[in-house]
Amino acid sequence: MNRLAHRRTKIAALGAALLITAGAAGTALASGADVPRGKPREAAALTGTAKLYRPAGDDITFTFDAHLAAKDTMDPEKAYGTFRFEHVFPDGTSGWAEGRVDCLVTGGKVAVVTGIITDTEQDNKGKRVGISVHDQGRNDRLGYSWIGRDVAKQNLPKCMSSAPFEKTRAGSGDFKVLPWQPVYEQAAPKG
């Protein structure tokens, strides 16, 4: 083999090795394996802050810090954390609420979180609400349970919300969804 052919073979082998390494690293990152060694990856998470897009000038902000520990992988109702939302209307009036997370389910880049409102100036303190998020980079989407005619009568169960129908304001979305990876027991062999 001449020197030029040998060099091309080495370059091709190096290129293949780099592609394999990059592919493995990408797969590890996508699976949430980018946690420090020895520390288990949490089962699911929804974090971040974004503002909703409203052409009338409303300023609506949602913030999440919701987690499901690795040890609770198969029990989304053991999720913990907080959420907050604030709505400032164009006339300057506003409303806000903070809450304690009581369920978190994620799948791919979509999360559904529910929780009990713990502090607000409205009359819905102690009420459960549900919020959904679709993490799409900086163009995230969001939905919430308090839509429709029967909102006042709603008795929302844990882990429920509407589809993420709202758009976030351009460039404001930074929600991060860590996909849930349930672990199912293997069926006993038949026989």
Score class of each variant (00 low, 15 high):
residue 85 F to T: 03
residue 43 A to N: 06
residue 35 V to C: 02
residue 71 K to A: 15
residue 98 E to Q: 15
residue 65 D to N: 14
residue 103 C to R: 12
residue 62 F to D: 04
residue 74 M to W: 03
residue 136 Q to D: 06
residue 88 V to Y: 02
residue 95 G to W: 07
residue 111 A to W: 10
residue 145 S to V: 07
residue 35 V to F: 13
residue 84 R to G: 09
residue 131 I to S: 02
residue 138 R to L: 00
residue 129 V to M: 10
residue 40 P to T: 11
residue 102 D to N: 15
residue 68 L to E: 01
residue 63 T to F: 04
residue 105 V to C: 06
residue 129 V to L: 12
residue 70 A to L: 06
residue 89 F to Q: 11
residue 39 K to S: 14
residue 78 K to I: 08
residue 145 S to W: 04
residue 83 F to K: 01
residue 39 K to T: 15
residue 38 G to P: 02
residue 81 G to H: 08
residue 144 Y to T: 00
residue 139 N to I: 00
residue 110 V to C: 09
residue 112 V to D: 03
residue 82 T to H: 10
residue 104 L to W: 09
residue 92 G to K: 13
residue 84 R to L: 04
residue 105 V to D: 01
residue 84 R to C: 01
residue 110 V to Y: 09
residue 73 T to C: 13
residue 48 G to Y: 05
residue 47 T to Q: 07
residue 131 I to Y: 08
residue 101 V to W: 11
residue 65 D to P: 04
residue 93 T to W: 06
residue 132 S to R: 10
residue 120 T to Y: 13
residue 98 E to P: 01
residue 59 D to W: 07
residue 57 G to P: 02
residue 143 G to K: 04
residue 94 S to W: 08
residue 59 D to E: 07
residue 110 V to F: 12
residue 91 D to Y: 11
residue 98 E to T: 14
residue 67 H to M: 02
residue 50 A to D: 01
residue 87 H to P: 00
residue 96 W to A: 11
residue 144 Y to M: 03
residue 74 M to N: 15
residue 91 D to F: 13
residue 120 T to V: 08
residue 117 I to D: 05
residue 128 R to L: 06
residue 117 I to T: 14
residue 70 A to K: 09
residue 110 V to I: 14
residue 120 T to W: 09
residue 93 T to F: 07
residue 112 V to C: 13
residue 89 F to T: 04
residue 50 A to P: 04
residue 76 P to C: 09
residue 115 G to T: 11
residue 44 A to W: 08
residue 84 R to S: 12
residue 74 M to V: 08
residue 137 G to C: 03
residue 141 R to D: 00
residue 114 T to D: 05
residue 60 I to T: 07
residue 81 G to P: 05
residue 35 V to Q: 10
residue 98 E to K: 15
residue 146 W to T: 10
residue 66 A to S: 14
